[in-house]
């Protein structure tokens, strides 16, 4: 009832649980659960859409939506740093996938490479079986089926950073079976070196080559791209030559 602006608290209250009102006009809505359903539906729906789509650019777009919805799930679970990281690295990395999809499939014959019907049926059966096994395993443990009523998680950026340099400042989780938790300095260093190696390796692998194998020349000569394909095919090499540095840095952006 203060006259001040309190916009920040509004979203907080939406994201976190609201107390049941004493005299409800309508049944109290648990916004956490509603948002969870929204993000979960988006994540699952677009994940399935990735499988169902044929066009590689659309696949990449659906993947982006799925991963972004997953970032929303991370925020809801209280992993704020991980959520932002998911948005920056995972979704940003998929951006590069999207660009490659456009570049590599600009010729019309390659836009959709369809699997055969029998492959589809087999994959469907195998996928259904796998899903059944996973779900059966997931629901078979009673302790996992309790609704969550825990405390609001505290910010994670600082304790994560401290843990990465080898110091743990977070309280051990309630009832944790493990004692003597350690920092993650060594894995952090290993991952840093790993990323450097990957950067150098990817830049080496993807360096511009001028020669083409005879087979590639055959394929290119035999294909008969329609108008759009020809236009886009003309665009592709130009893009690659003008932004040779950009291609590398795109990988760098995905990995930094």
């Amino acid at each position: 009832m203060t006259g001040t602006i309190r916009m920040d608290s509004i979203f907080t209250s939406v994201l976190l649980h609201l107390p049941a009102p004493t005299a409800p006009v309508v049944a109290a809505v648990d916004w956490h659960s509603v948002l969870f359903l929204l993000f979960a539906g988006l994540a699952c729906g677009f994940a399935i859409a990735v499988v169902a789509a044929e066009n590689v650019v659309r696949m990449a777009l659906y993947l982006v939506f799925s991963l972004a919805a997953t970032a929303g799930l991370f925020f809801l679970a209280g992993a704020d740093f991980l959520g932002a990281m998911q948005l920056m690295i995972y979704v940003g990395g998929t951006l590069v996938l999207l660009v490659f999809g456009v570049m590599l499939t600009a010729q019309a014959p390659l836009v959709s490479i369809k699997p055969s019907a029998s492959d589809r049926a087999l994959a469907g059966i195998a996928g259904a079986a796998l899903l059944a096994v996973l779900l059966a395993a997931a629901v078979s443990v009673d302790a996992w089926r309790k609704p969550g009523v825990g405390e609001i998680p505290s910010p994670t950026a600082t304790p994560l950073g401290m843990a990465l340099v080898g110091v743990r400042v977070d309280d051990p989780p309630a009832g944790a079976p493990l004692t003597g938790r350690s920092g993650y300095m060594l894995p952090f260093e290993i991952v840093s070196v790993h990323l450097l190696v990957v950067l150098v390796g990817a830049a080496y692998l993807a360096r511009a080559k001028r020669r083409k194998t005879p087979r590639a020349i055959d394929v290119l000569a035999s294909s008969d791209p329609p108008s759009q394909g020809a236009v886009l095919a003309a665009a592709v090499p130009a893009v690659r030559t003008t932004s040779g540095a950009g291609g590398k840095s795109a990988l760098l952006g995905g990995g930094h």
Binding site: V239, T242, S243, S249
Partner: peptide, 14 residues
């Protein structure tokens, strides 16, 4: 459009 988009992708990611 494609030229513009590809330039933008390289530029923004960099």
């Amino acid at each position: 459009s494609l030229f513009g988009a590809m330039r933008e992708a390289a530029q923004v990611v960099s």
